[in-house]
Amino acid sequence: MQLEAKKISFRYQKNSPWILKDVDLTVQAGERVALLGPSGYGKSTLAKILAGYENPVKGEVFWDGAPLPKKGFCPVQMIGQHPEKAVNPRWKMARIVNEGWQADEQTLRELGIEKAWMNRWPSELSGGELQRFCIARALGPKTKFLICDEISTMLDVITQAQIWQKVLAAAQKGGLGLLVVTHNKALAARVCERIIELPKLNRPS
């Protein structure tokens, strides 16, 4: 199984410059790949396209040979940079974390999610705590591929290491493919087996 992006091109409007142009990328299940590149080069846009949050202007994304499903649980899940923007502020945490699957005790415990937090609103938790919920939410049994877009940039290095140990353990256990968007080269080298520089894949006009 593999996640395959074929000739992905993206721009916001007709006549505006291409952000992504003919990007090809293949990542195998079980593989851990880092995507590096300067800010403003379209890393997050590519991540969103690969996870089905954004449609490319041209090109297609395939998981296991088929286009990403438009309905139901997407096997390619994304965790973003701003957890506070990825949760419904009017839902309590228990509802948020169980939206895609019934998160089991062990996952919650390993991510350091305390029982008392389940009854809180998102605004009552810090960014690092919310991010743990976003990770737990994405680690359901139907998830086959995980896209991590700067998931630890806003965290201190200890929380960063905590969170990555859990993500790596889950990826190992479930044989997940991992695409890690980051600007931190040391982190990329630590977490991933293969490093891709987006400017080398991308040929915007």
Binding site: V157, Q165, R190
Partner: peptide, 9 residues
């Protein structure tokens, strides 16, 4: 905990 060191939280 730094990724360039032990990455140990």
């Amino acid at each position: 905990a730094l990724p360039q060191n032990d990455f140990k939280p």
